[in-house]
Design a binder for these strands. Structure first.
Lengths: 171, 171
DNA sequence: CTGAAGTTGTAGAAAATTGAACAACCTCGG
DNA sequence: CCGAGGTTGTTCAATTTTCTACAACTTCAG
């Protein structure tokens, strides 16, 4: 049950014994818990979405599009929103297009551009799948916090998300 | 800046309007923050490891092996520990073996089995890379919590990790 | 001992991801 | 209008991941 990690368990055998910015035991257990939860949660949700023939990335795109004006979004914006490369998104939209979930649509003002547009079938698929997915998110994550933990956790994570979002642009 | 999600933003346009176990606004912002942090953090750490020619999975394997007795582990156990399929691990170990980081070793008691064994070079690589990695983990995560947040967060995550670990076995 | 059943790790093909190169297009200073 | 410089999305090749089948081996009941 180990996980990717920065290990600071065996002082004498640590990869760099001295003057390294090592993690304390308290820090390390948090870091490992975070990694474990991230990984296992993604695994679990992915497994459950699979019963609807959706990858986790497919679901993400359905959600983002469903929340966009006219249920569509420019390819580049969608790539940014979902943290994918343009290339990867292009392939993925091709796949989802074959599955009938989305459609590529010309962009009126800009002949370079394309919209990825949620089809009716894509919308209905999301309607069908979302409740199960939310149930899982609750069962495996949200409902497992106390009421005050829920807000405290958000307060802790929000600035980190912002920090990381900031890094994303430059490097 | 959107993310994979369960969206409960536009009541009238939600995929399933009624009697669904929807997320409240408070719940949703936490869920989105968690997803965003997970994803961006992995992206960032992966990017930084890349400067040492290591994928995040390579690093994870180096760490797990370094903490194992005799710095080696059976393929199947290693696959389980790192949440990979046997096939994927096999390919990955082949790559890491080419890179000189690990070695396949016969297993005395069981002629079916093999150990993945950390080489001296693999160990030295970890020694070299780990401090940078830990610095990143601090800069982007650990050092961004207040002292009390750090423990509170662990208390919140630990039971979830345990729950998910439990699911893993069965389904 | 024998053979059915389970385990271990690999092989090969198919699918997904990445990064670079590219054609088509837009923008804007001159 | 012109053309340099940037943007948009796709495509290609190389790599990585996934899935399935498989051969070698162990275990264990009979």
């Amino acid at each position: 049950m180990n996980d990717m990690d920065t290990h600071a368990t065996e002082p004498a055998a640590d990869p760099a014994e001295d003057d390294a910015p090592w993690l304390t035991a308290r820090e390390q257990r948090l870091w490992r818990a975070h990694l474990e939860v991230s990984k296992l949660l993604e695994y679990q949700l992915s497994r459950e979405l699979q019963q609807h023939d959706l990858a986790i990335n497919d679901y993400e795109i359905l959600v983002v599009l469903s929340e966009s004006p006219d249920r569509r979004m420019r390819m580049t914006d969608l790539a940014t929103a979902t943290l994918q490369s343009k290339s990867r998104l292009s392939h993925q939209i091709t796949r989802m297009e074959s599955a009938g979930l989305v459609l590529r649509q010309e962009c009126p003002g800009d002949r370079r551009g394309l919209f990825a547009h949620l089809t009716e079938q894509g919308w209905q698929t999301l309607r069908k799948v979302a409740p199960d997915h939310v149930r899982s998110v609750r069962a495996h994550f949200i409902d497992r916090f106390e009421d005050d933990q829920l807000d405290a956790l958000f307060e802790a994570l929000a600035p980190i998300a912002e920090h990381l979002r900031g890094l994303r642009g430059r490097g």
